[in-house]
Amino acid sequence: MSRWLERFRPYLMVAPAIIVFVLFFIYPIGYMIYLSFHEWDFISPDKQFVGLDNFAGLSEHPEFLKSLENTFVFTFFSVGITTVLALLLALWINRPTRFYGFVQGAVFSPHIISLVSIAMLWMWLMDPQYGLLNWGLEMFGLPQSQWLASPETALYSIILVAIWKSIGFNTLIIIAGLQSIPPHLYEAAALDQSSRFTSFAKITFPMISPTLFFLIIMNLIGSFQVFETIDIMTQGGPLQSTNTLVYYIYEYGFRFFQLGYASSAGVILLIVLSILTVLYFFLMSKRVHYQ
């Protein structure tokens, strides 16, 4: 008896974690893949097997293709601009004085505010008639924008909010990366007559590149799943201009109750995210450790 217990004790110990993982991660994913080959309306008892029909439907559905395109545009600009701006900001405010400490705190603060509040706040700021942004543009004599109200600018307005929300966190992580660079390296570079630009290109940038890479992959994964801001601010509109992959899945699954169809879109998302994750682990294992 006791030997039996001895042998199975480790399995018993990890069992709770495994059960939760299987029940809430593996099973739903498996069930989603299963559903993607079926047609189901959430209520009827029988699920009709349709093979690859759902995927074929997706590939012909302009709304889906538009949402995919929007997701890529959103991801490209929000991740690209966030990373570049965060790097510049980090280089600027990474100083030990009290003033810069305050700036760091201020830049970080959007990160701790709920995305729902941020979305509401920006909706108000971006209101074409009464919004603060248009008022500001008018004051400087600049042309006003329709912001969320026009299909041309809605997606970029959402991108602006996403950047504003994530830049603080990114900046902080980059600052941590910058601070882990030994100061002696810069002294050695000063004695080597290195210019500021050379020091950045040859020392700073290579030293923080693992940090930047980590941030970019994390931001990519996050951006692909953008949902809350869309749901609150535009509901995918106007004219599908802000419809993204996750919002598309949500609409077809839980508004139109086409579970099988939504699941097949979910599988597409899963594949994209899996590729990013594999890429991340693959490159992380190859990355140079500077110690």
Partner: peptide, 14 residues
């Protein structure tokens, strides 16, 4: 002037 640092301060990326 050339300097040799206590922890060498070699550029790890080069």
């Amino acid at each position: 002037v050339s300097m040799v640092f206590q922890n060498y301060a070699l550029y790890p990326t080069m």
